[in-house]
C-alpha cells in the first residue's frame, strides 16, 4: 500500500512534470537552486504535510522519531548529506526511479548503500552493543 503510493507519485511526477522523484535532487534544488525551484518547494511542502493529514483523518500519530542520542542523529545527517551529493541520489532517486529505468549507475549505487547500511547496523548493534 505505502510502497505503491511511492510508485504512483514517482510515475505522476514523470508524467506531469517530466522529473525524477529523487528527494536528494528535489531538496538540493531548493536550498541551492540552479534551475526552477518552485515546483520542488511545492513537492517538499506536500511531503511534509503527510503526517499531519494522517493525524487529521485517522487520529493516529505514526512513530517517526529516532530513539537515538542527538550526536548520532547529527553525524548520521552529515554523512547522508555528503554521501547522497557525491553519489548523485538516494533511496528514492537511485533505488526507485533509477532502477526502474534500469540505470547501471543507480543499480550499483543502490547495492552499495544497502550493503554499507547493513554493515553499519551490524557493527553498531552487534559489535559495539548499540548507542
Amino acid at each position: 500500500m505505502g510502497g505503491s503510493l511511492i510508485g504512483i507519485a514517482a510515475v505522476a511526477l514523470m508524467a506531469l512534470h517530466g522529473r525524477v522523484a529523487g528527494m536528494t535532487g528535489i531538496l538540493t534544488g531548493v536550498i541551492q537552486p540552479k534551475g526552477d525551484w518552485d515546483w520542488r518547494l511545492a513537492f517538499l511542502v506536500g511531503a511534509i504535510a503527510a503526517p499531519g493529514l494522517i493525524l487529521l483523518t485517522t487520529g493516529t500519530s505514526l512513530p517517526l522519531q529516532a530513539e537515538l542520542p542527538s550526536w548520532a542523529i547529527i553525524v548520521g545527517g552529515l554523512l547522508v548529506g555528503l554521501g547522497v551529493t557525491f553519489g548523485g541520489g538516494c533511496t528514492s532517486g537511485h533505488g526507485v526511479c533509477g532502477i526502474a529505468r534500469l540505470s547501471m549507475r543507480s543499480i550499483i549505487a543502490t547495492i552499495t548503500f544497502m550493503v554499507t547500511t547493513f554493515i553499519t547496523v551490524f557493527v553498531i548493534r552487534h559489535m559495539l552493543g548499540g548507542f
Binding site: 553525524v75 547522497v84 533511496t91 544497502m114 550493503v115 553499519t120
Partner: peptide
C-alpha cells in the same frame, strides 16, 4: 558514505 549515515541515524 550515505549508507553509513543511514545505518547510524
Amino acid at each position: 558514505v550515505f549508507g553509513i549515515g543511514w545505518g547510524i541515524a
